[in-house]
Structures are given as structure tokens and as C-alpha cells.
């Protein structure tokens, strides 16, 4: 069972005052909460890395929580910031890959995010961009296969993936 808001707030006050035991419990509970948060947003094998990354950010920025405000929205904001950062890294990696190599790597590591989140975000993208990302990054088709299937040129497929991923990262950052 994940701790509730008052428990989190109480533990956080103790952590801000340097209480080691409370910090240990708090970080463990925050870890569980983050695991749930990311479960719908990133591929399963990326969750633990991202959770650890957020735990470090959480720890480093613990002075920015104000006890007069709710704890969980504060934590959610940090988690979302790290998630966007993760997307940006993926986007940069994907852009570089598209510019350097015609072939698409089969690594799941670079899949932008879990389908659940993508379905909603895809609605915001032009159809051609969403289709290119879906076929190449999720369906696993090559650029050439995607070009044949969609009727777009290979260059256009690459451009659509490049622009679509960039827009996705921006959409996530802007969404509250």
C-alpha cells in the first residue's frame, strides 16, 4: 500500500530536518509511488532507472517543498520534469540515429514511451507524423517499409519522425 498525502508530508518534514530513519521510509514510499506513476508512461525496463533518477532529483531538491503546500503535486511535478528530460534524451538519440543511419535499430530502449500515453498524445500530431512514428518506432518497420506502406518518400518518413518526436516532447512539457 502506498502512503497517503499526510504521511508523505509528515515524513518529508522530518527528512527536511535531517531525520535518517524518516528519510529511508520516505524514499522507499516515494519509490513505490513513482513506480506506479511511470508504469503508464515508459516501457517497463526503463522504469527502475527513471525511478532512481527521480529519487536523486527529489533528494537534491528537497528544500523546495513548502510544508504549507500539498506534497504529491510537488512530487508529480518533479517526476514529470524528469520524464520530459527522458523523452528529450530519447528524441536526441533518435534524431542522431535518423541522420546517421538509414536502418532502424531494434532496441526497445529507444521507444519513446508506452502506448497508453502515446495514444492520447498522437491525437495532437499531424496524421503523417503520427503514422510514421507508430509504424517505425512501435511497429518496428524499417524506413523503407514504412515509406512503401504510407506512400511517403523515405526522406519524408525521416522528417516526419524527427518533427513528430520533437513535438511530442514539447507537448508533454506543456501539458499540466
Amino acid at each position: 500500500m502506498v502512503a497517503d498525502e499526510p504521511t508523505f508530508a509528515r515524513l518529508m518534514v522530518a527528512a527536511q530536518n535531517g531525520d535518517k530513519a524518516a528519510t529511508n521510509v520516505l524514499l522507499s514510499e516515494v519509490g513505490v509511488w513513482l513506480e506506479r506513476y511511470f508504469r503508464r508512461r515508459v516501457p517497463p525496463h526503463s522504469i527502475d532507472d527513471l525511478v532512481q533518477e527521480v529519487l536523486i532529483a527529489f533528494y537534491t531538491k528537497r528544500a523546495t517543498w513548502d510544508p504549507s503546500r500539498a506534497f504529491l503535486p510537488w512530487l508529480a511535478a518533479i517526476a514529470r520534469y524528469r520524464w520530459v528530460d527522458h523523452l528529450r534524451k530519447v528524441y536526441k538519440h533518435e534524431s542522431k540515429e535518423l541522420l546517421e543511419d538509414d536502418a532502424v535499430e531494434d532496441s526497445e530502449e529507444e521507444v519513446v514511451m508506452a502506448r497508453v500515453s502515446l495514444d492520447r498524445l498522437f491525437g495532437e500530431l499531424p496524421a503523417a507524423q503520427a503514422e510514421a512514428i507508430e509504424l517505425v518506432k512501435i511497429g518496428g518497420l524499417s524506413i523503407r517499409e514504412t515509406a512503401e506502406k504510407t506512400g511517403q518518400s523515405e526522406s519524408l518518413v525521416k522528417v516526419n519522425i524527427h518533427r513528430g518526436l520533437k513535438k511530442l516532447a514539447a507537448l508533454v512539457e506543456k501539458a499540466d
Binding site: 530536518n17 535531517g18 535518517k20 529511508n24 524514499l27 529519487l55 533528494y59 528544500a63 517543498w65 513548502d66
Partner: peptide, 16 residues
């Protein structure tokens, strides 16, 4: 990671 962070915890001044 949690054990190490907890061990190193120090009091902080809140950012206002």
C-alpha cells in the same frame, strides 16, 4: 541508493 541517500541526509533550509 535509498540507504546511501538516507545515510547522507542533512537538514536543509527551505526555499521560500
Amino acid at each position: 541508493l535509498i540507504a546511501s541517500l538516507s545515510e547522507e541526509i542533512t537538514p536543509v533550509r527551505r526555499v521560500k
